[in-house]
Write a protein that binds this DNA or RNA. Structure first.
Length: 403
RNA sequence: GGGGGAGUGCCCGAGUGGUUAAAGGGGACUGGCUGUAAACCAGUUGGCUCUGCCUACACAGGUUCGAAUCCUGUCUCCCCCA
């Protein structure tokens, strides 16, 4: 992108003023909001590397493509010479927040948090530039004496906190809001004070929290950050946001074939969003949706698994789903008894229940070397099973071998 | 502190003593169609040594020939008053 902006001025200060605007425009690409108006440009005009903040929740370590949207934007900032501070919210995770419908967020043990934080970092560095990233844990500064905490709390009013739309809705609906939940914006706003954030990024759902960070900064009389919100990527169902708990996500560490397959299964309706958010700069040609989807899947698999991985995944995909053949590499599972009791062995091989296997068999979903096997023969002589590829449903394959 | 209400299968949600493994919906899965898209049709959706057996309606006891449904205790959650 345009990080080298020519400055044609005779301004001895280096012309940063001229380029600040262009930089701000370039960096704002794909974002939904950049607030307040002009603040980002002003900061860029200072001509120094900015500190860009992203707060993450260590309860779910797996990064998926939804995170990739925000991380990709962080990367843009890094490429423009700014540095990123990744804040792991270990403090709040350790306290545990019982809010939100029925889903009680579990209190995490320190070890779990550390493990999650590490996994998260490993995955995040598939996108971020390691050299321009600093990782901090917010327990570092949030574990403060109670009087300081109270001092922090004194800086805001309940009314301010309740400005948040979803709080107001829940109040009106008589739904519970935990005190911690209420204070959450305050704590995460303090993170901005602690690291001296110039810019904070997040999804559009974080707008209130991000803005609140400005208020907290103001009360501490530090510089106030600009905030930038990115669109929320829809999940594989095309309806709800991509999230691990909804099970509609593509993890950045998903194996190539799986990643390719998942991407092919998204509804056409969200394809444009996927392409523009995940593959910025890719020229959109007039391809049919099917081909556009393939191209996207290829490129994304390449990005996370290396050049060429996308094509391999596509080949494997065609083999299994277009030509309906078994994949080239099929996992083996060792069976011992003779005859082979299929419900038991296949359930074990695929990690499901025997009843489930029986059900699928009853519905004609079991194939042996491409031939449908009916519910009549649940026990196969070992010689008939040994070395054969079994397919359960569309996508579960295993080769049974005698041990 | 007082009063009221609620806890059902992956989720939501019927069901207030007897074909109830438990209506209905969502989701998911299987088969068909196909571009692993959408739409649509059909079926499945607790477990198992599967024409049968076992375990299930927060947990533990109890009443009954028989309970998700009645009683007691425990836990959890929500609302109202203070």
């Amino acid at each position: 992108m345009s990080k080298k902006i020519e400055t044609s001025s005779d301004d001895p200060s280096g012309g940063s003023r001229v380029s600040a605007r262009d930089q701000a425009v370039a960096l704002s690409e794909r974002s939904v909001d950049v607030l307040p108006e002009g603040r980002l440009e002003q900061l860029l005009g200072e001509g120094r590397p900015l500190t860009i903040k992203l707060g993450i929740d260590p309860t779910a370590p797996d990064i998926h493509l939804g995170h990739a949207v925000v991380l990709g934007k962080l990367r843009d900032f890094q490429d423009a010479g700014h540095s990123v501070v990744l804040i792991i919210g270990d403090f709040t995770a350790r306290v545990g927040d019982p809010s939100g419908r029925s889903a009680q967020r579990p209190m995490l043990e320190p070890e779990e948090i550390d493990a999650n934080a590490r996994t998260f970092q490993d995955q995040a560095f598939k996108i971020l530039d390691r050299d321009r990233t600093e990782v901090r844990f917010n327990s570092e500064w949030l574990r403060m004496p109670p009087e300081d905490l109270l001092g922090l709390m004194a800086r805001t009013t309940v009314a301010q906190l309740l400005e948040r739309e979803d709080f107001r809705n829940r109040m009106e609906a008589d739904e519970p809001i935990s005190a911690l939940e209420l204070l959450y914006p305050l704590l995460q706003g303090y993170d901005s004070v602690a690291i001296g954030a110039d810019v904070e990024l997040g999804g559009t759902d974080q707008t209130f929290n991000l803005l609140f960070g400005r208020a907290v900064q103001a009360s501490y009389e530090t510089g106030q950050q600009a905030i930038m919100t990115m669109p929320i990527l829809p999940g594989l169902d095309g309806l709800r946001r991509m999230s691990k708990s909804l099970g509609n996500y593509v993890g950045v560490t998903d194996p190539p074939d799986e990643m390719f397959g998942k991407l092919m299964s998204i509804p056409d309706a969200v394809l444009p969003e996927y392409r523009s958010l995940l593959l910025p700069g890719l020229v959109d040609t007039d391809q049919p949706p099917n081909l556009a989807k393939r191209e996207m899947a290829r490129l994304l698999v390449d990005r996370f698994h290396g050049e060429g991985a996308g094509e391999e995944a596509e080949t494997a995909f065609d083999r299994v789903f277009v030509q309906r053949e078994a994949p080239e590499e099929v996992a083996e599972y060792v069976v011992t008894g003779d005859p082979v009791h299929l419900p038991a062995e296949l359930a074990a091989a695929f990690g499901t229940s025997r009843s489930e296997v029986r059900r699928v068999i009853d519905q004609g979903g079991l194939k042996i070397e491409g031939e449908v096997l009916g519910p009549d023969s649940l026990d196969l002589p070992l010689v008939d099973a040994d070395g054969r590829v079994f397919q359960l449903g569309k996508r579960r394959f295993v080769r049974l071998v005698s041990g």
